[in-house]
Computed example of a mutant assay.
Amino acid sequence: MSKPKKSFIPLGIAILTVSNKRKGADDTTGFYLSNACTEAGHRVVHHEVLPHNKYQIRERVSALIVNAEVSVIVLNGGTGFASDNQTIPGIRPLLDSEITGFGELFRQLSFVDIGPASMQSQALAGLANRTLICALPGSGGAAKLAWEHLLRPQLDARQGPCNFVPHLLNERCDDGASSCKN
């Protein structure tokens, strides 16, 4: 007996750009991520630019992880070693579990493009309240690399042998309905 074919499940995604320089109109990396998510069939339910302030980042991410429309939060910017980068300290305390392989794979892929400078990326992913939270560097190239090689495949329920989608949906959502978080 063959397994039933899996279906694509559109997820609600929030895009947060962390920058003291970018404003809404020139958020090129945020717009790239929004467009890429939409083109992949997902819904962008929130898109915002935040300053490098770990408490503002934490407050916004906290609000989004309890929002039933949001299954994934993608932050871009503030993940390097500059003194004002606050993304990682802002989100790490919120995580129920960290997905260490995400940062490891991102740095490995990034090494091919930028060499040893890739070790300075603190790219991070984890789960909080059945919400996937991913923190990427703010450069467009880094966001594209993470989206194409890591996020897009793992946000597709058809991806095998496993993907993140079952971790983001409530057990009651066996029909693939969106927004089924606890």
Rank of each mutant, 00 (worst) to 15 (best):
E69S: 11
S71G: 13
V74W: 02
L75G: 02
L75V: 02
N76Q: 14
G77Y: 12
G78K: 08
T79G: 08
G80M: 02
G80C: 01
F81W: 10
F81S: 09
F81D: 09
F81Q: 05
A82H: 11
S83N: 09
D84C: 11
N85W: 00
N85Y: 01
N85R: 00
T87A: 00
T87P: 02
I88D: 06
I88L: 11
P93L: 07
P93F: 06
L95G: 03
L95V: 05
L95I: 04
D96N: 11
S97W: 13
S97Q: 15
S97K: 15
E98C: 08
I99R: 09
I99A: 11
I99F: 08
F102S: 00
F102I: 06
E104S: 07
E104A: 06
L105K: 03
R107D: 07
R107E: 04
R107Q: 07
Q108T: 11
Q108L: 14
Q108F: 14
Q108W: 13
L109K: 09
S110C: 06
F111Y: 14
V112N: 15
V112R: 13
D113A: 15
D113R: 15
D113L: 15
I114P: 14
P116W: 12
A117G: 09
A117W: 05
M119S: 12
M119D: 07
Q120P: 03
S121F: 03
S121V: 00
Q122M: 13
A123N: 05
A123I: 13
A123D: 13
A125W: 14
A125M: 13
G126R: 02
G126S: 03
L127Y: 08
L127H: 05
L127A: 10
R130N: 13
R130P: 01
T131G: 01
T131C: 07
L132E: 06
I133H: 07
I133V: 13
I133A: 04
C134E: 04
A135N: 10
G138T: 08
G138E: 12
G140F: 10
A142Q: 00
